[in-house]
Simulated scan of single mutants.
Amino acid sequence: MIRWRELSKEERVRVVKGIDAGVGAGYWTVAEACAEFGVDRSTYYRWRERVARYESGDARALDARSSRPRRHGRRKRDDVRGEVVRLAKTGEFGSPTAIARYLREQGTSMHPGTAIRILEVEGLYGYVSKVDRAGNRRKVRGLL
């Protein structure tokens, strides 16, 4: 099997054009042409679309790209993270749940668990020593 990253741009175009020519002339079916060139059929269709974009002027269409996501789907924007930290430091809110509720009321989607994770990273949430009604000291999680 041919790997896209191992081919130069010219070779990529040549492979796609070779398969297209063989299929267009009636020599092969797409499956047979792909087998001849050592390319998976679904890969060929993906490459063909990229070559078409390249030929229509998109110079980066044939560049090898990382399969790594460009951003984490659940990561909050830095301004939202900063707002969570700012609200925790004001002392107006007694818990991350209250902060998340306030932000939801302001129109920002926020789960309490997300607020907790942000505050833990910033060192503003963790185990706190509290005294219960019976006078016993207990460690509970809360805002620091």
Rank of each mutant, 00 (worst) to 15 (best):
M1I: 04
R3K: 13
R5S: 14
S8E: 03
V16P: 02
V16R: 02
I19S: 03
D20Q: 14
D20F: 06
A21D: 11
A25F: 10
T29C: 05
A31H: 09
A33F: 07
D40S: 11
Y44G: 02
Y45V: 01
W47G: 03
W47C: 03
S56C: 07
A59E: 15
D63I: 03
S66Y: 11
S66Q: 11
R71K: 12
G73T: 05
R74Y: 12
R74G: 15
K76G: 05
D79C: 04
R81E: 15
V84Q: 09
V84F: 11
L87H: 12
A88K: 09
K89P: 11
G91Q: 07
E92I: 06
S95P: 01
L103H: 10
E105C: 08
Q106N: 04
G107F: 02
T108W: 12
T108G: 06
M110S: 06
M110T: 01
H111I: 03
T114R: 08
A115S: 01
A115I: 02
R117N: 13
R117G: 10
L119T: 00
E120W: 01
V121W: 06
Y125W: 04
Y127S: 12
Y127K: 10
K130A: 12
K130I: 15
K130C: 12
V131D: 02
A134Q: 14
A134H: 11
